[in-house]
Design a protein around this nucleic acid. Structure first.
Lengths: 273, 273
DNA sequence: AAAATAGTGTCTTTGAGACAGTATACT
DNA sequence: AGTATACTGTCTCAAAGACACTATTTT
């Protein structure tokens, strides 16, 4: 635990020494780590789940795609660092966990700290998951580096087998393939039992648009009629705004916004197949 | 991201400076953090969910209970550190994620890194969740520090309101109350849709013993008959060993061991009440 | 005998899946 | 008219919840 630095029996760090000697507490007697945040930013574009990736300008992995992220500053919290990086890279405002309206959903995903995951130094990276609606301007704001949305499954396929195309299909830098995979799996399972799928939608959306989000994230086809019955029948999930739209063609569809409910009980069931 | 150290526009760390100046990559130009692992070790004892806590011998929070844990060494991975600390504190062998038989279940929980969570220095702690069967010897092995099992709800009640008893009921040190709460909630939700509840049981156990695990973790009463039908009817959940036991009194009960299934579909439903 | 635990069977209700059929837009 | 999407309703089946009832032990 963090409060253990003073325990006498605890092995503590001394440069170039081993850990097996009991020694008194020394503020500098711990191995220094760099701590970063990496972002899995997901959205649904053209009926496909997409992730934000940036091209690396420096070695290692120069020219390869990677997840956006950066160092945690010594006076800021982890979520604050993730939120700041998100704003710098995309211009998106995040809205943590119990999210108020208007911001992208942001939650901690997992932490990655294999000793050799970065060849330059010991880096522990806290990954965050961001779910955002499709952005009108691809990646507004941010710095000058090249960034793009890429279909998640293409990135993941490439990260597993051999890259098919050297350039576009190359696996992600570092262990970012694993991080992305964990993020996608988290998103896939979380929309089952929470109302989080609406984080992929604009403020007002139709049942059909929400269904296409589920279909894109899960990669399956859902019965439009049973889906409609399910989501409109779950109290607190969707609130009708009164308006309608025909932006999807066909009969005008009712517009909804996200309701107060955050948990779906019973859950949306993901078809097995 | 961890690979961003070389990006020119990235704000990088310089001792005593601010972050708003672009500067070239420098291996030492990042804020140094201490990285620790904290363990939420849960077991079921006397029909109550209990957590392993150790008494602190040094300031800060001297004399208060805290979660076991310690520094990550500079050549070991995060899970390896958690596994090592677990062995040092309890003598338990862990069996990570896709656990083989015989070890306690260990999985990453979350990471806590608020700037002032440890008054002495900037510490980022990666918390791990351990689920273990009730141990015959309370806490075998480990070092000389005082350690004990404490009912989780008593620790959590105390961490919220004012401590009722100053000594025994005092809230946990640091942010360990929050970490414990997150760990308990993870365990509660995970036994719904996985076979993880068997991690609280000895290698061979009865349906009644497994039911008492669910009842202790969730804090509810379950119908023994419906529970029996559910768990024995889920393929791959339980495998009969052929033996029976009367250690719970009453009619002899069949003994089971954990099956191959890791995910429960459909899940065990937690009563709402 | 009484009490405790183990296990089976039966009925009801909820809800998911399949799919017929109607409504209202655009081309 | 043809087609696309939106929405309602109906049937069937799986499974959870609420029990009644039997079986086998200890006290």
């Amino acid at each position: 635990m963090s409060g253990e630095a003073g325990a006498v029996e605890r092995p503590v760090y001394r440069q170039g020494d081993d850990y097996d000697h009991a020694m008194p507490y020394d503020p500098s007697a711990f191995p220094p780590f760099a701590v970063t945040v990496d972002l899995v930013v997901l959205t649904v574009r053209k009926d496909a789940l997409c992730s934000l990736v940036v091209r690396r300008g420096e070695p290692p992995y120069q020219g390869r795609w990677a997840l956006p992220g950066g160092f945690v500053r010594d006076d800021e919290g982890l979520e604050a660092a993730a939120s700041r990086e998100l704003a710098e890279e995309t211009g998106l405002r995040s809205q943590a966990a119990e999210g108020h309206r208007g911001g992208a959903h942001l939650e901690q995903l997992a932490t990655y700290g294999a000793p050799q995951r970065d060849p330059r130094m010991r880096v522990v990276s806290v990954a965050y998951l961001v779910l955002a609606p499709d952005l009108p301007s691809p990646v507004a704001g941010g710095d000058a580096r090249s960034a793009r949305w890429a279909p998640s499954d293409a990135l993941l396929d490439a990260s597993e087998g051999l890259g098919r195309d050297a350039e576009q299909q190359a696996p992600l830098a570092f262990d970012h393939g694993q991080i992305l995979q964990d993020g996608v799996e988290r998103a896939r399972s979380k929309i089952e039992y929470s109302s989080l799928a609406t984080a992929f939608c604009p403020p007002e959306f139709t049942v059909g648009e929400l269904r296409r989000v589920y279909e894109a994230v899960w990669g399956v086809a859902l019965d439009p009629r049973n889906f409609h019955r399910k989501v409109t029948g779950t109290p607190g999930f969707l609130v009708p705004t009164g308006g309608t739209t025909t932006r999807q063609g066909g009969r005008p569809a009712q517009l909804f916004r996200t309701g107060e409910a955050t948990v779906l009980n019973p859950p949306m069931l993901r078809p097995e197949a």
